[in-house]
């Protein structure tokens, strides 16, 4: 019997495969394609204290080997989320990680406190890394003292395990990982998207209304693997790795770099079955290599 469970901050996941926040809604849309019970966790789209309208369109465009997005964290607000999305997820035997966004520390705290009484929220992932909103988000993730402060504030207002989701748009990812750990984060996840730009040369216009957007997809994977390696070697807390994962082979690569769990992001849009195919592919890999416990491969490449 092969053991595929992994544990992060006391929460045990049946397997290490999740999906990246914002690429999967709260699972409703993709439940038509995949059995959510097969996933280690559903990571929900970022939710704020009040509804956010998001950015003007066009919000997405394709780039070589990936895409840019500037959705702007459109979300219906925490009340709708608790009344609609969490009950939906209660129908499934999978862990739920709620991604939280905000413009100010107070915004984040309001959401975190609201979720404290929600048993269906197993963990919180704090988005301090979205490149597409003017206030909050990435501003907290690029400044070490701001990251430290918000991590401490959130930890002081919730008993649920806290994952800080980090941005790759920094000079030293290891330093930011250490800052989050020192401030009390139970885990970190990375990478969020890399800020990019595309210009439509026929129309002489930016492809996105927001001008810049976050790049995701297979083209960013080597950057993500490198950062997961650097971050996981800088901290003792678990790392959730993501950035261009399309297949089980990609997922295993991230785990060997040091990730305890992995998320499929943009590739859900390309292959709606990608998450479950990763779960199955990882099982095949372990069996083929005679590995009885998936934890053996985490960070195995020194």
């Amino acid at each position: 019997m092969i053991k595929t469970e992994v544990t992060i901050a006391g929460v045990t996941f049946k397997n290490p495969v999740m999906e990246g926040s914002g690429t999967f809604g709260s699972g409703m849309e993709y439940s038509e394609f995949v059995d959510l019970n097969r996933l280690g966790a559903v990571v929900t789209k970022g939710v704020a204290n009040v509804p956010w309208p998001g950015n003007p369109t066009p919000r997405v465009c394709e780039v070589y080997g990936g895409m840019l997005n500037a959705i702007g964290l459109q979300n219906p607000g925490i009340e709708v989320f608790c009344e609609r999305d969490l009950p939906f997820l209660s129908n499934y035997d999978t862990k739920v990680i709620v991604n939280v966004c905000g413009r100010s520390v107070e915004d984040y705290i309001e959401v975190v406190e609201r979720l404290s009484d929600e048993p269906r929220a197993d963990m919180l992932e704090i988005n301090v890394s979205c490149p597409n909103v003017k206030e909050g988000a990435i501003a907290f993730g690029t400044d070490p003292s701001a990251l430290s402060n918000i991590t401490k504030e959130i930890k002081a207002h919730t008993k649920k395990p806290v994952i800080m989701k980090l941005t790759p748009n920094v000079t030293n990812i290891a330093e930011m990982a250490k800052v989050a750990e020192d401030a009390g984060a139970d885990a970190i996840s990375l990478i969020n998207t890399i800020t990019g730009m595309k210009i439509d040369i026929e129309r002489r216009k930016f492809a996105l209304a927001n001008k810049t957007g976050g790049m995701s997809g297979p083209a960013i994977k080597p950057i993500a693997v490198r950062m997961v390696y650097q971050a996981s070697h800088a901290v003792k807390i678990p790392v959730i790795g993501m950035g261009g994962i399309a297949t089980a082979e990609d997922a295993i690569e991230f785990m060997m770099a040091g990730a305890t769990a992995v998320s499929v992001g943009m590739m859900n849009f390309v292959n709606p079955y990608a998450t479950v195919e990763c779960v199955e592919g990882i099982e095949d890999y372990l069996e083929r290599h005679g590995i009885t416990n998936i934890n053996e491969i985490i960070g195995c490449v020194e």
């Binding site: 914002g22 690429t23 993709y30 038509e32 369109t57 066009p58 919000r59 895409m67 859900n268 849009f269």
Partner: peptide, 9 residues
């Protein structure tokens, strides 16, 4: 992007 209502693009 996704075509199925998840990405809000």
């Amino acid at each position: 992007a996704c075509g199925v209502g998840a990405c809000l693009g």
